[in-house]
Design a protein around this nucleic acid. Structure first.
Length: 816
RNA sequence: GCCGAAGUGGCGGAACUGGCAGACGCGCUGGACUCAAAAUCCAGUGCCCCUCGGGGCGUGUGGGUUCGAUUCCCACCUUCGGCACCA
């Protein structure tokens, strides 16, 4: 038997697969060719940053196992790959080291593609797409135009998150703890005119359709919290002197009679008008200016004492007509609710803290069940608890709180001073970026016509060349004057192009649709094709995308569904999050410089060993602490497999397919375990252990008559994990094309045993194990248990009060 | 603070529906082969006690339910995620 030469075997089979186009899946040619057994396997596409890291290896190997498993179970599996190739890292590298972002990106793509092929993943490379190629972003622009036309993309001036380091705006989803999630710089609030997608219009749909999904509960919870739906009411508060109604949202309409003041956000558009001409005007304006200079982190710091100023104005509480003072305070946020709140210090912690600081009155209006109110002095912020009743609330006093809330809203609604309302924490998605390496936004600004979309036939708007990628107060594209100047498509007059580019999350919000029809140059995708392949049957990616990519992509699909371009409402039916690969406790990533390159490992141990190792380490959804020593174990297993199966192949050519015997039985048990683990439990580490057991048994009896069947089964079952060695051994066993073979089937008859090991307990403690015939009845089992000398020693003549029998497992004798 | 997940040998982990805790692997110890090494193979390996038959303890901590609990219930501790002035 020759030595196991991983490099030679892997090169050989990778060439065979490519020559035979083993994993390329053509599109169906018409409705007649559609079959029900399609399976769309997708992993989140990589950002092309130099090299693959072990996190990618985990992600894509996991997808590869599922791909092989589903293929061999008869499914037509679509398993494409592409690159999220626009984005800041390449642009920053170009600024730092020179070169063009495109060159840097394409070099990375070439390298990563080579590394992916080296690991032997079963990918349909014909469907490869890259976000930065005009053939792709042409359609990103086209989709933008559809959104614009539908009123779902719009431009407005708004306070936005500005990263002073990356010199660009960030979406809310890209700000973590007040910092830029990419570079860590503290984010500033700026008022800028920006492009937004109206994702808030889909807030309810995004929540409701969670029920259609087979997703981890924690991911759905994260999305639900992020969307943050709150039910309540909006009431109108009147400023008599100015003949003005100001709406305010509250989730506690039952406490309306307890309002003792009213607060506007500093950004509220009415502030200026309210304070005009009052003695406090200068102070108030100064306060608004000061607030504007706070960073988002500072403003949100709950430790900071609440601040505010009195405007000098009063509003009427619509419930009791009380004249209450209007304040401006930065604890009220402009972009939630209406930017104004009805302050009820007796029943809200924040209002209470503010009232204490500025000596404002506190009025209790809800009493707990026991009637022992605290006069509102604790500022008890409690959601409705059982038995609470309204007090000091005119005709509503005495009502239980939930009924009171409802009654107050109905009453004020009938008088035109209120209505039921819902507020969301979710904000519209700000998607324009003041950077170079992204998809140009296809509009022009015309002095006469305003914002004018670039006509579809003029797409793509090709990303122009610029001399300097550094943003200097304006987007880099604006520096290319020649490109910027353009004739207005509507009136032909002088116009200027949009110089901002799109957030890269726009690119990745529809790539899974393009894979279905990747080369079409007349449409982004044909509806018939996406309706066939979509939704993705199994999506695999990091949970860090729970509220970014996974929310944006759902939004895109919902819009495309409503516009009639796709026939489904959700993109990703089943979702799985692989864990992080950590080193020294932190996530492995290039920016942390703690990457172990898969290349080196593949050179040393072979791709099969790397693939096996990354899945054998533990459950795929848990984090893995990188430990290079352990890969020796999987390499050793592969050598053992090679030797043992190779020996069988040389020794036992053909013969009876499945002779009865312990190895045949073990093989069937292993088939059952592996099939259930991958297919039902989606667990990837234990199948490897099961095959190791089978190989260990085989190694102990390599000359047994059923050795050949055990060897073939082991090779067949390990194929999704270690496809190269499996293919080579399969060939040596006298077969061909294991990747096309049906997944092995369990024969239930082969699982049956004549005897089993009966566990005998006394008072729940194991005292003996006896081999007994499988057909024995309960009484017989109890007799055998009692007869055991070890049990006799424990019984010591005591009375047996009860015997619990678990068929095929154990007998428990309960003694006094 | 609120919400969620998880705590099992020296290490990674297994035990799916309440039924043999520690599968499989790493590491370690001893042995075989070898001039030697690598590779490979065999045996052992939770902790403690032992008259070598076996016995006791043991799945974060403390309770509970049960013939029987890593698994179910209650309380607590620790770690890791998410949210956090959202009215």
């Amino acid at each position: 038997m020759d030595r196991y030469d991983a490099q030679r075997i892997e090169q050989k089979w990778q060439r065979v697969w490519e020559d035979e186009r083993a994993f390329y899946v053509p599109n169906p040619e018409g409705p007649a060719h559609l079959d029900e057994s399609k399976f769309y396997m997708l992993e989140m596409l990589p950002y092309p940053s130099g090299d693959l890291h072990m996190g990618h290896v985990l992600n894509y190997t996991l997808g590869d196992v599922v791909t092989h498993f589903r293929r061999r179970n008869g499914d037509t599996v679509l398993r494409p790959m592409g690159y999220d190739s626009f984005g800041l890292p390449a642009e920053n590298a170009a600024i730092r080291e020179g070169g063009h972002p495109r060159e840097i990106t394409e070099r990375s793509i070439a390298n990563i593609g080579r590394q992916m092929r080296r690991l032997g993943w079963a990918i349909d490379w014909d469907r490869e797409v890259s976000a930065h190629q005009p053939e792709y972003y042409r359609w990103t622009q086209w989709l933008f135009l559809k959104f614009l036309e539908a009123g779902l993309a719009y431009r407005k001036e708004a306070p936005v998150n500005w990263c002073p380091n990356d010199q660009t705006v960030l979406a809310n989803e890209q700000v973590v703890d007040g910092r830029c999630e990419r570079c860590g710089a503290e984010v500033e609030a700026r008022r800028l005119e920006q492009w937004f997608f109206r994702i808030t219009a889909y807030a309810d749909a995004l929540l409701d359709d969670h029920q259609l999904l087979d997703w981890p509960e924690r991911t759905i919870t994260i999305q639900r919290n992020w969307i943050g739906r709150s039910e309540g009411a909006e009431f109108l508060f009147r400023v008599e002197e100015l003949d003005l109604d100001i709406p305010a949202f509250t989730t506690r309409p039952d406490t309306l009679f307890g309002a003792t003041f009213f607060v506007l956000s500093p950004e509220h558009p009415l502030v200026e008008r309210l304070v005009e001409g009052t003695p406090g005007e200068a102070t108030a304006n100064e306060y608004v200016r000061r607030t504007a200079h706070l960073t988002i982190g500072e403003r949100a710091d709950p430790e900071r004492a609440k601040t505010g100023v009195f405007t000098g104005r009063f509003v009427r509480n619509p419930a009791n007509d009380a004249r209450i003072p209007v304040w401006v305070a930065d604890y009220v946020l402009m972009d939630y609710g209406t930017g104004a709140i009805v302050a009820v210090p007796a029943h809200d912690e924040r209002d209470y803290a503010f009232a204490q600081r500025y000596d404002l009155p506190v009025q209790e209006v809800v009493e707990p069940a026991d009637g022992e109110g605290d006069g509102g002095q604790a500022g008890a912020f409690v959601a409705h608890s059982e038995g609470e009743r309204l007090v000091n609330s005119a005709q509503f006093s005495g009502l239980p709180a939930p009924e009171g809330a409802k009654a107050i809203v109905e009453w004020l609604a009938s008088r035109g001073r209120g209505r039921p309302a819902v507020s969301f924490r979710l904000r519209d998605w700000g998607f324009s970026r003041q950077r170079y390496w992204g998809c140009p936004i296809p509009v022009v600004y015309c002095g006469r016509c305003g914002i004018v979309p670039v006509p579809e036939e003029d797409l793509p708007v090709v990303l122009p060349e610029v001399d300097d990628y550094r943003p200097r107060g304006k987007p880099p594209l604006a520096s290319n004057e020649e490109w910027m100047e353009v004739a207005c498509p509507r009136c032909g007059g002088e116009a200027r192009r949009e110089s901002e580019t799109m957030d890269t999350f726009v690119d990745s919000s529809w790539y899974f649709l393009r894979y279905c029809d990747p080369h079409d140059d007349s449409v982004p995708f044909e509806r018939e094709l996406v309706d066939y392949w979509m939704p993705v049957d199994q999506y695999v990616g990091g949970i860090d995308h729970a509220i970014k990519h996974l929310l944006y992509a759902r939004f895109f699909v919902k819009v495309l569904n409503e516009l009639g371009y796709v026939g489904f409402r959700e993109p990703f039916q089943r979702l799985f999050h692989q864990g992080w690969v950590r080193q020294g406790g932190s996530k492995m990533s290039k920016s942390r410089g703690n990457v172990t390159a898969p290349d080196e490992l593949a050179d040393r141990y072979g791709a099969d060993a790397v693939r096996l190792y990354i899945l054998f380490r533990g459950p795929a959804d848990q984090d893995i602490e990188w430990n290079a020593d352990d890969i020796e174990g999987t390499a050793r297993f592969l050598r053992r497999l090679w030797r043992v199966v190779g020996g069988v192949a040389e020794r036992a050519p053909g013969g009876v397919a499945q002779p009865a015997g312990p190895l045949t039985q073990k093989a069937h048990e292993t088939i059952a375990r592996v099939t259930d683990d991958i297919g039902r439990r989606f667990q990837f580490n234990t199948p490897i252990a099961a095959v190791m057991e089978l190989v260990n048994d085989l190694a102990r009896a390599p000359e047994a008559p059923d050795a050949r069947f055990a060897a073939e089964t082991a090779v067949s079952l390990i194929q999704p994990y270690a496809p190269h060695i499996a293919e080579e051994l399969w060939q040596r066993l006298g077969h061909a094309r294991l990747w096309e073979q049906s997944w092995p089937a369990v024969d239930p008859a082969r699982l049956e045993r004549d005897t089993f090991e009966l566990v005998v307990q006394v008072n729940g403690r194991v005292r003996d194990r006896i081999e007994v015939a499988a057909k024995l009845g309960e009484a017989e089992l109890v007799e055998r248990a009692k007869a055991s000398p070890r049990v006799q020693a424990q019984l010591d003549g005591k009375e047996i009060r009860r015997a619990v029998v678990v068929p095929r497992k154990l007998v428990n004798l309960v003694v006094a």
